[in-house]
Measured scan of single mutants.
Amino acid sequence: QTVHVKGVQYHFPNPEEAVKFALKVAKDLGGRVEFHGDEIHVE
């Protein structure tokens, strides 16, 4: 599972961890989380 944050990719073997990370980052940055297939983008 890959999380993209402002052009940087973070790889997580566990999808659940990836989602938790993405939600935390989005909250910290005041952004939103978008799901694109296997990828999660924080915009």
Rank of each mutant, 00 (worst) to 15 (best):
Q1H: 14
Q1T: 15
Q1M: 15
V3C: 03
V3R: 00
V3E: 00
V3D: 00
H4T: 13
H4F: 15
H4K: 09
V5Q: 01
V5A: 04
K6I: 07
K6T: 07
G7L: 04
G7N: 07
V8Y: 09
V8P: 01
Q9L: 14
Q9H: 09
H11E: 07
H11D: 07
H11C: 07
H11W: 15
H11A: 07
F12S: 00
F12D: 00
P13E: 14
P13I: 12
P13S: 14
N14W: 05
P15H: 15
P15V: 14
E16Q: 12
E16V: 11
E16W: 12
E16D: 11
E16T: 10
E17L: 11
E17A: 12
E17M: 10
E17S: 09
A18H: 00
A18I: 00
A18T: 02
V19C: 08
V19G: 04
V19E: 08
K20Y: 08
K20L: 11
A22V: 02
A22L: 03
A22E: 01
A22P: 01
L23G: 05
L23T: 11
L23R: 08
K24S: 12
V25I: 13
V25N: 04
V25S: 06
A26D: 01
A26W: 03
A26Y: 03
K27R: 11
D28T: 11
D28M: 13
D28Q: 13
D28I: 13
L29V: 09
G30Q: 08
R32D: 04
R32N: 07
R32A: 06
V33G: 01
V33W: 04
V33H: 02
E34I: 15
E34C: 10
E34L: 13
E34N: 10
F35S: 04
H36C: 07
H36E: 06
H36T: 07
H36M: 10
H36W: 12
G37A: 07
D38I: 09
D38R: 10
D38M: 11
E39G: 14
E39T: 10
E39Q: 13
I40E: 01
I40C: 03
H41M: 08
H41L: 08
H41D: 03
H41R: 11
V42W: 03
E43M: 15
